[in-house]
Write a protein that binds this DNA or RNA. Sequence first.
DNA 1: CTGAAAGCGCTAACAA
DNA 2: TTGTTAGCGCTTTCAG
Lengths: 346, 346
Amino acid sequence: MKNNHVTIKHLARELGISSSTVSRALKDHPNVSPETKKAVTDLAEKLNYLPNSIALSLRRSKSNTIGVIIPEIVHFFFSTVISGIEDIAYNAGYSVIVAQSNESYEREVMDTRALANHRVDGILISMSRETTDYEHFESIHRRGMPMVFFDRVCDTINCSKVIVDDFDGAFQVTRHLIQQGYKRIAYLAGPENLIISKQRMDGYCMALEQYNRAFDESLIVRGRAADSEETAKELTAKLLNSPNPPDAMFAINDRAALGAMKAAKEKGLKIPQDFAIAGFSNWEFTSMTDPAITTVDQPGFKMGQEAAKLLIREIEAEEDETIIPETRILKTDLIVRGSSLVNGHL
Amino acid sequence: MKNNHVTIKHLARELGISSSTVSRALKDHPNVSPETKKAVTDLAEKLNYLPNSIALSLRRSKSNTIGVIIPEIVHFFFSTVISGIEDIAYNAGYSVIVAQSNESYEREVMDTRALANHRVDGILISMSRETTDYEHFESIHRRGMPMVFFDRVCDTINCSKVIVDDFDGAFQVTRHLIQQGYKRIAYLAGPENLIISKQRMDGYCMALEQYNRAFDESLIVRGRAADSEETAKELTAKLLNSPNPPDAMFAINDRAALGAMKAAKEKGLKIPQDFAIAGFSNWEFTSMTDPAITTVDQPGFKMGQEAAKLLIREIEAEEDETIIPETRILKTDLIVRGSSLVNGHL
DNA sequence: CTGAAAGCGCTAACAA
DNA sequence: TTGTTAGCGCTTTCAG
């Protein structure tokens, strides 16, 4: 490719003036005569001058670029987050470099390094599933690189974070089912070591408590319930065939809900009349042909926006200003299918 | 933020040598003594030196960055494309800047300009729906900016393109239905002015012809059939209530297929026994609970890969080398639900 | 109002 | 084997 970039120098030479004057004219500096200004802008227009942001970045040691590291792009939640990030970044004059770790620690380390080399002004991160060592983040954080974690956050780094209120989401879902008149709400639990699992379970319990429902251990399926649609289906079927079956189900994720739905259908139960399903979900449900499922949507777009805002705030803070890291907890949106939005925060 | 970047100068000063020596040592230049080399790399390691790609970009007038402009990120097809782009880019040492036009012409123009300013080495584009004027692309293309269009391509610009073989996809779908034994295959057509609509219709006709089926105009629904799920449903219902109803349906997109499915279900038809549906789709179907629908998937990942490869090839071509623009037509993947992949090209 | 000069971080020719 | 110098494109003192 022939490198045909028009530079300030070209304009200067053409007009027989110095490049500093051109520079000033271009940015409408007061101390430059109207004639020169006009001549410069006209020529710039004519030759289609495009300022070189690379040079600017070097000069200012600021690239007006932010980096994003996510586990995968092809995922409704994450692509929604990127979209939110892009929204805020664009309006604040930043470009967005996207790197996907593919859930690989090694790749994440490389991505981090690459973004640091690129001198992005800050980094937004959702960690890979593999990541347990945080040195690659810590080393650049020590150097003062602004960073904000979202969704999959790193506890050991003292920076801003954006997460979802799993407790409240679970509470909302359960309350919704109770308010709809369901009596026996089963729960397909997630892995017990995950914080989100615990929080969701707590939200479920809290709703039961608040509505004076007894907690019934026989309605709780612990273990690998939500690992796959298959297991969820089997476990639900077992529950449905028990002597005192549930009339509703809290599903911890898409797989759990899909499995539960299939089990119910096979048993000939009408959804949601005989058996209601509600729970956490990502993309899958929004396109489901069966509108009978109420879901808590992760507010991905908002999460991206919030994370980007926090990051940019930190990037643009004055030298001496100290930004206190802040963890923002976003409410989920309860979406009732087959009717309008019940409790949307968007 | 305090700007704590270690530079070559720092290393040089610390070691009492010149920065050029440091530079050479860092890149393992032959003409530098082993001792110096070791001293330099050790110190670089210790101080966690990270090369400044911005400075490098300026020096080399090459940013090792490619820009992507897409209508929206939150879309299975497009996010898949990005993923494919990222895959190739990463392995070739390029970063990816993503800009979404949000289907807005104005925004697309701004994005193009921003990427040009950023001195990306090339741009990958899928045009916004609004775009009918191409000057923003042409002006940078004239300057020699490598660019490749994908999916929503621009005909007036002489550069490489990657598109999907709609004709073949439609042919495959129709043939599949015929081979499954369906006799009367209805067709909900797309807008007649779109090239893809025509090509898909041609593929449909070709399959009929090849299997000696008569083309029956009464099975074709022209017009706004695929505009919304609602209209698709109504139109399908009408067909199903006609004296000589179809036993299968070619759906031009997700909406058409969903509408058709609902109409069939309301009429109590079993899918796919009484009424089969097959057609083009994006994400929606892959998560459908009803496995009875055969779809042609747009090969998004591959499209991203191919587009990125074409772009990088052009970027890295020698000065004097002339790259002949090339339009790559990708085959679609016929995916039969409820069974394994029948004709996958991945 | 305008110009000359320095420097952001890095590399590569040229000198030593 | 190492150092000096110049320059990528731009802005910004400092001098005129």
